[in-house]
């Protein structure tokens, strides 16, 4: 057995774990691992499974799982908070539109998505279709009919009555008195121009485009009807309340912090274990170097 010759007083091991005839060093170093590859000495080498390293392994497992768990917790909090803030406002009791804003007022930023109660008269002649609106992944149109708030001829608020896949699918515009509940939304305006100003299709819910279709003033807001009439699907809200965005962001950043800590703990552990299990560079100077074997000190297989 070529690998079993003794070199410089320590036992070389190949193929199977062997121990020296004398018992020195066996107890502390252990023989786990090191069964393959080039001949290695057992002296001074700590196994990665040595009892004194078990504490390090345990500490690593605890801190990495704690950091991961806390990160997930913060991430969930981030998601939940965002969700909660949205639902909070959209499920408030509806308030009369006229309590929140007048027809000349700017949009009340804190009321995005708030349910409002709109009473007035439909302006069927002002009906338009807003193109490029998706619902469940299908491209379609919003059907928008203004409501003169408080009665005929008074300033009107555009109401998104619902969504249709094509303009031809839209039911005829209603007329007469109306009392509806919907979500308050700020009007859009990214500068996209109406490619065809003469038809009833506009690219955005924008006052400058809508005003061409009515004879009265318009509120600087629109309302998405909560209960569309037959033939219409409730439109998805374009602007959701974002009051909680910053608080949510904080949780998100905390989550990342925790995960970074987890990675760092993993790195420290890796370094520690590597340092502890590394073979001494110079066998000659270690205390583990035996004083020299007796000529009859033949290696014995451990299973013998």
């Amino acid at each position: 057995m070529r690998g079993s010759t003794t070199v410089r007083g320590s036992t070389t091991v190949r193929g199977s774990a062997t121990v020296r005839g004398s018992a020195t060093g066996c107890g502390s170093t252990g023989v786990t691992g090191w069964t393959t590859g080039a001949p290695r000495t057992l002296e001074g080498v700590t196994s990665a499974f040595a009892p004194r390293l078990l504490a390090a392994h345990a500490a690593m497992l605890v801190s990495v799982s704690a950091a991961t768990g806390l990160g997930v917790w913060q991430y969930d909090a981030y998601q939940a908070r965002k969700q909660a803030e949205r639902i909070d406002l959209t499920q408030e009791t509806p308030r009369p539109l006229t309590d929140l804003m007048g027809s000349d007022d700017p949009f009340p930023g804190a009321d995005v998505g708030r349910p409002v109660d709109v009473r007035g008269t439909w302006v069927p002649t002002g009906t338009v279709f807003v193109s490029g609106r998706e619902h469940d992944g299908v491209d379609g149109f919003w059907v928008v009919t203004p409501v003169a708030v408080g009665g005929e001829g008074r300033p009107a608020v555009p109401v998104v009555r619902g969504w249709v896949p094509t303009v031809a699918d839209a039911p005829p515009a209603p007329s007469g008195e109306v009392d509806l509940v919907g979500s308050l939304q700020p009007t859009e305006g990214t500068g996209e121009t109406d490619p065809n100003p003469d038809d009833d299709v506009i690219p955005q819910v924008r006052i400058a485009d809508l005003i061409q279709h009515v004879d009265q003033d318009l509120y600087s807001a629109y309302v998405v009807d909560d209960t569309p009439s037959a033939g219409l699907v409730k439109a998805d809200l374009a602007a959701l309340p974002d009051s909680g965005r910053f608080t949510g962001l904080r949780n998100f950043l905390y989550a990342i912090e925790w995960w970074l800590f987890g990675l760092f703990a993993l790195y420290i552990w890796g370094r520690f274990v590597r340092d502890e299990t590394r073979e001494p560079d110079d066998l000659g100077d270690g205390t583990a170097t035996p004083s020299g074997p007796a000529p009859d000190d033949h290696p014995v297989p451990s299973n013998a």
């Binding site: 950043l253 912090e257 800590f261």
Partner: peptide, 11 residues
């Protein structure tokens, strides 16, 4: 808010 700043500087 300082907790957020503390966390990152602490890293």
């Amino acid at each position: 808010l300082v907790w957020l700043v503390h966390g990152w500087i602490y890293i």
